[in-house]
């Protein structure tokens, strides 16, 4: 399968270099110089992953991420030159699945992309956690009979935790299994996703009953 990636980046030289390098990694790369150019293309063409630079002329990168997230669960990786915690968290909160900071190697970016578009494992049984019913094959989650809309990353995160059946899953395990981080990753990535997931599956996200934090080690699902 050839993964189709749309690169939204205003700096033409970076776009060219990344295009070459990502093609080397075996991706089919499309280019867009702005959010205004990218959004119609994403509606018209079937891309697997979109890479969005946060500093774009005109429509802001965060706005692009927000719009795309409203449309569906297309995996989004934010590319940023800003590493302040605020910018990274804003990007993740807006709905990005992952982020990379400049300067980065196309090889690293490629690993992130592959982790996001990984096909689901062989058919697994539906899992029940409290009022949640997770159907891995269909990729849907129901809470008390009602469908909960999760992005693919949120779904995979929930599935990893539910699969552990109440055992603790460490941060490193989650980062490795969900995002494909061989190297230890940034905690902000996981923190924001856990927060987002809680907002969708918990009755009271500030006082979680299902997705529990185990201080100093990781997370577990109350079974």
């Amino acid at each position: 399968m050839c993964v189709r990636v749309l690169l939204v980046e205003d700096d033409e030289r970076i776009r060219q270099a990344l295009c070459l390098a990502l093609s080397d990694e075996g991706f089919n790369v499309g280019e867009a110089g702005s959010g205004e150019e990218a959004l119609p293309r994403l509606e018209a063409e079937p891309f697997d992953v979109v890479l969005v630079d946060l500093t774009l002329p005109g429509m802001d990168g965060l706005e692009v991420v927000r719009t795309l997230r409203e449309r569906g669960d297309l995996p989004i990786i934010v590319v940023t030159a800003r590493t302040d915690a605020r910018d990274v968290i804003a990007g993740l909160e807006a709905g990005a699945d992952d982020y990379v900071t400049k300067p980065f190697l196309a090889g690293v970016l490629a690993a992130r992309v592959r982790a996001l578009v990984r096909r689901r494992g062989p058919g697994r049984e539906a899992v029940r956690v409290g009022a949640l019913e997770i159907r891995p094959q269909e990729g849907v989650v129901h809470r008390a009979g009602e469908r909960v809309h999760l992005t693919r990353t949120e779904f995979r995160l929930l599935l990893e935790l539910a699969g552990a059946a109440g055992r603790i899953v460490t941060r490193e395990q989650l980062l490795h299994k969900v995002w494909g981080y061989d190297y230890f990753g940034d905690t902000r990535l996981l923190d924001v996703h856990i927060r987002r997931l809680r907002r969708k599956i918990e009755v009271n996200p500030d006082d979680p009953e299902l997705l529990l934090t185990v201080r100093g080690s990781g997370y577990r699902i109350r079974s």
Partner: peptide, 13 residues
Amino acid sequence: RSPLTTMVNAGEV
């Protein structure tokens, strides 16, 4: 950072 991103990736190619 921006020129470096171009450089490391062009270098990689």
